[in-house]
Design a protein around this nucleic acid. Structure first.
Ligand SMILES: Nc1nc2c(ncn2[C@H]2C[C@H](O)[C@@H](COP(=O)(O)OP(=O)(O)OP(=O)(O)O)O2)c(=O)[nH]1
Ligand SMILES: [Mg+2]
Ligand SMILES: [Mg+2]
Ligand SMILES: [Zn+2]
Length: 574
DNA sequence: GCCGTTTTCGGCCCGACTGTTTTCAGTCG
């Protein structure tokens, strides 16, 4: 079993214990262990060999024994025993909004509800309202929520590139009226997570209740889920949930911190507050003995009062940032303004929309010092990839443009396909004539892990190659990451001095945060590129920067923060 | 079930909203 399979089992165990009404702290213990195993960088099998399972935070004697049992037999006794006493599809019932483990258990014991279909039937036949403690409204809400779940399936999460523009649109609309003074995007969007579960907003208003009212009747609102004095939730066009929290007093910083999360970060901060004699909440600190409330108007002040350096939102995942902040060791993270050029740009010579000149002028307007025109190679036929002859013309055209355009250097490149057998789509003689060679896998993406890994390794061993683009090939909603051994690929990249890309296209974000962190820890250099096919897509750089910041990446980890002359020196460009 | 710069036992983050309830449990963030 691998890490995610072990974690999944532990999560399932927690869910079953919840359904059974077990001690909540025991449940939390299983969830914490599961989460930490899911986020582990090392292979849990290797930790086991080294007898280091106990070093995983949240794994004690009991869970360690169960993990060993799982690694040996694929399951564990306690899991199998409890599993047979619980309906198989309990997960889909608890997943219905408003139904938790208690209600699920009640519905099962009173009505024999075992799955979503049974739940719908019970609601439609008005059997739920007859259970003591349930009522007409509860039944109606369950019916609506169950139907919504059936219709949507389990879409679950949205790519950041979908959610962020909607969040910006809603923020703007809310500011249109006079009731709401300030709106900030919070939650996982503010942390630049690559996928998000919902849109979390906070706002400041002198009349919170009226402001919530405005929110719940806004354009494109599909359904109101909750409407209170300080908080409302709606389903917005596109079936995305939007949570809005409003305050009028001076605790805006405390609220922003709370609603930015993550949950795990919040819990740890609150534990630190407790150890200092305070209760922390979205209203600030409360003295545990005097009950005096101390609100903070900025996040900076609140972190400082807790004895911590300010922690950028992208780091707030309980991945060690709180410990670092205690020692004032939060690094200066890379910013959009550090980027000096884009090394992965397409033109209308292949599948881009604009000419090389237009792309260059747009980049210049952004303050870039250089761009690498990396059109597709011949094998990418649907992308109008360049034959060897057209690539030679491409090189000449770039030479010509460099003579007439001032203020930006156009580098002559390619996004050369790594063919299924690991060879490249252009000859070495041709690659040698280019300034920057970007390579990528496009076709034959279904290869097994061994083949795919060797394919990429072979490409990285080629002396003319500089950058591996979108290394895992994932595309949200379209394609899973390639089966591949990332450790091996990173070892090779390091050995041969190759650069790995953080592709900023919001449907890719590849490398992702975790892999980018792995690369940084190993000392591999990165390039943050947009892979733009149009003038507007240069703007996608913010997504790549957000991902890089989540990986604790600094400016000097990234080659396209270098000035033109320095990057030319680094890559041997004349 | 886990864990310990005042602890190996007794805590474990804290608050909003809803429904069905005369005082709160459940769910969610
Ligand atoms: N203290 C505390 N804060 C929480 C808890 N659950 C959520 N929050 C805070 C932190 C979250 O970032 C924020 C928004 O909640 P969400 O459920 O939307 O989570 P988040 O946006 O982080 O992730 P998401 O992508 O939406 O799943 O509310 C909790 O149990 N305790
Ligand atoms: Mg959220
Ligand atoms: Mg939310
Ligand atoms: Zn590309």
């Amino acid at each position: 079993m691998d890490n995610s399979e072990v974690a999944k089992r532990l999560f399932e165990m927690a869910e079953m214990l919840e359904f059974k009404g077990e001690n909540v702290f025991k449940i939390k213990a299983y969830q914490k262990a599961a989460r930490n195993i899911e986020e582990l960088e090392e292979d849990i099998n290797i930790l086991r060999q080294r007898d280091e399972l106990g070093t995983i935070s949240g794994v004690g004697e009991a869970i360690e024994a169960k993990i060993k049992e799982m690694l040996d037999t694929g399951t564990f006794k306690a899991f199998e025993e409890i599993r047979h006493t619980i309906p198989q599809d309990i997960e889909e019932i608890i997943a219905v909004q408003g139904i938790g483990p208690k209600t699920a258990h009640l519905l099962y014991s009173k009505l024999g509800v075992k799955d979503l279909q049974g739940l719908l039937k019970a609601a439609e036949e008005h059997r739920i309202r007859r259970i003591p403690g349930m009522g007409v409204k509860t039944e109606e809400h369950i019916l609506i929520a169950a139907k919504r779940q059936l219709a949507e399936g389990n879409i679950g999460r949205f790519p950041l590139g979908v959610a962020l523009p909607i969040a910006e649109e809603i923020s703007k609309k809310l500011l249109d009226g006079i009731l709401i003074r300030e709106v900030r995007i919070a939650g996982s969007i503010r942390r630049w997570k690559d996928t998000v579960g919902d849109i979390d907003l906070i706002a400041r208003s002198d009349e919170p209740e009226k402001a919530i009212e405005v929110f719940t009747v806004m354009d494109n609102m599909q359904e109101v889920l909750e409407k209170g004095n300080t908080k409302g939730s709606i389903i917005y066009k596109g079936n995305i949930q939007v949570d809005l929290r409003i305050v009028k007093d001076d605790a805006f910083g405390s609220l922003l911190q709370h609603f930015t999360g993550s949950k795990e970060h919040n819990v740890k901060l609150r534990q630190i507050a407790l150890s200092k004699g305070f209760h922390l909440s979205e209203y600030g600190l409360k003295n545990a003995t005097t009950a005096e409330q101390i609100p903070f108007s900025t996040e900076h002040e609140q972190y400082e009062r807790l004895g911590l350096q300010f922690i950028p939102p992208e780091l707030r995942e309980d991945w060690g940032e709180i410990e670092a902040a205690m020692e004032k060791k939060i690094p200066r993270l890379i910013e959009v303004s550090d980027i000096k050029g884009d090394l992965h740009v397409h033109s209308n010579w292949s599948d881009g929309h604009n000419s090389i000149e237009e792309m260059a002028l747009a980049a210049k307007a952004l303050g870039y010092q250089y761009i690498n025109i990396s059109d597709h190679s011949a094998s990418s036929k649907i992308a109008n990839g360049l034959s060897e002859k057209r690539l030679l013309d491409h090189i000449k055209e770039i030479e010509r443009l460099n003579e007439c355009i001032e203020g930006i250097r156009i580098l002559s490149g390619t996004e050369c396909d790594i063919l299924p057998d690991g060879t490249l789509d252009y000859s070495d003689e041709l690659l040698e004539q280019l300034d920057i060679v970007v390579v990528a896998v496009h076709g034959s993406v279904e290869q097994d892990s061994k083949t795919m890994t060797q394919r990429i390794v072979s490409a990285l061993e080629n002396e003319h190659v500089h950058i591996l683009a979108h290394p895992t090939g994932r595309k949200f909603g379209k394609r899973l990451p390639f089966a591949m051994n990332m450790e091996k690929i990173m070892d090779t990249a390091l050995e041969y001095g190759k650069v790995l890309e953080i592709n900023s296209s919001p449907q890719r974000l590849d490398l992702n945060d975790k892999f980018a962190m792995m690369a940084r820890e190993r000392g591999i250099k990165l390039a943050i590129n947009t892979d733009t096919h149009s003038l507007e897509q240069f703007g996608n750089i913010r997504y790549g920067i957000g991902t890089a910041r989540r990986a604790w990446i600094a400016s000097n980890d990234v080659i396209n923060t270098l000035h033109l002359k320095d990057i030319c020196k680094l890559l041997g460009i004349s």
